[in-house]
Write a protein that binds this DNA or RNA. Structure first.
Lengths: 153, 153
DNA sequence: ACAGAATAGTTAAGCGCGTTAACCTTTGGG
DNA sequence: CCCAAAGGTTAACGCGCTTAACTATTCTGT
C-alpha cells in the first residue's frame, strides 16, 4: 500500500539543511578548524583578528571592528592581548596621529600561517575520504548556498 | 599560449572549502539563524540549552554538559538564567534526590518553537533563491561532508 | 582662521560564558 | 557500614562583549 512519495518541499529541505548545518558546526568546523588554534595560544576571537591583520597589514582597529561587527573597545582589548603575546604591534601613522596601524610580528605571521595550514590540512583529510565526484558536489553545493546568502544581503 | 589546466588538487579543494565555510558562517549561519534569537531574549548558549531540553525533556544538567562538551558549572549557570526568565524549571526526581530533571515551561517551549520556526523560514527563504537542482546539490554536498566528518571521529 | 563635529582610540564598569577548586548531598558497592 | 562515585552548586577568576565617558586629532563650514 505504498503511499505515493511526494517530493520534498522547500520547508522540508530547510529543516534538513538546518540539521546539516548544526552537524557541520559540531563535527567539522569546531574540531577540524579550531582544535589546533586552542592548542596554540589563541582562542577564536584572537585568531580571527590575527587572520584579518594578516590579510590587511597596516589596517586600523576600526577596520577590524567593522569587519566583525563588534565595537571598538572589544577589538582594542583583543589587540592588547595579542600585543602582550608579541604577535602584533601598533605602529603610528605619521599622516594621522590618532591612528594605530596594526601589523603582525614575524611570530604572529608565522603563527597565522601555521594555523591556516593546519586548517587546510584538516579539511584536506576530510575531503580525502570522499570521491572526486562527492568533492565537486560539496564545493558546488556550498558555493550555491553562500552565493544565495550573499545575494540576500 | 594557454597553459594546460590541471584539475584541482585535494589541497586546492581544501583551501576553497575553508573560504566557503567562513563565508557560510558569516553570511548564512549568523545572520539567518541567530538574528532572531538575539531579538528574542536568548543568546547562543542559552538557545542551545533550550533546544536540547526541548528534545530531551526531563534530562539532567550533566546530560547537557556532556552533549555540549562543557563543564557542569557552565550549564548550571545557563540553567539559572533560563529559570530566572521562566523558560524552564528544575523538577525533582523521586528516584534520585540528587538529580534535577530539566523541563521547559510552556513559555520556554513556545520560545523554542518560535525560534526554530524562524530558523527554518530563514533557510527556506535562502533555498527559495535556488533551483531544485541546486537545492539537491546543496543538501547532498553538506551531507557528504558531515558524514565524512562523523566517520573521521 | 577658528569653532564645532566627526574620527580613532582607550579606560572603566558591568554582564555572560567558560574554566578549576572546593564543597554538600545522595547513591551504590564492597 | 563505610567510602567512593555521581549530581549539583558556589566561589573565584579569565576573556569577550557591551555602553558610557573621556582624550586627542582631524576635518568642515562659515
Amino acid at each position: 500500500m505504498g503511499r505515493a512519495v511526494s517530493p520534498p518541499t522547500l520547508h522540508d529541505d530547510a529543516r534538513r539543511l538546518l540539521e546539516l548545518l548544526h552537524g557541520m558546526i559540531s563535527s567539522a568546523f569546531r574540531p577540524v578548524l579550531w582544535k589546533r588554534a586552542l592548542e596554540l595560544e589563541l582562542n577564536y576571537a584572537q585568531a580571527q583578528v590575527l587572520f584579518f591583520i594578516q590579510r590587511h597589514p597596516g589596517c586600523l582597529a576600526s577596520d577590524v571592528a567593522r569587519a566583525y561587527a563588534v565595537t571598538l573597545p572589544a577589538i582594542s582589548q583583543v589587540v592588547d592581548r595579542l600585543a602582550e603575546k608579541h604577535f602584533l604591534v601598533r605602529t603610528e601613522d605619521p599622516r594621522d596621529r590618532r591612528a594605530a596601524r596594526l601589523r603582525l610580528t614575524r611570530a604572529g605571521d608565522a603563527l597565522a600561517r601555521e594555523l591556516e595550514g593546519a586548517q587546510v590540512e584538516g579539511l584536506a583529510a576530510l575531503l580525502g575520504r570522499l570521491s572526486a565526484d562527492e568533492r565537486r558536489t560539496v564545493l558546488a553545493g556550498l558555493d550555491a548556498l553562500v552565493s544565495a546568502a550573499v545575494r540576500e544581503s
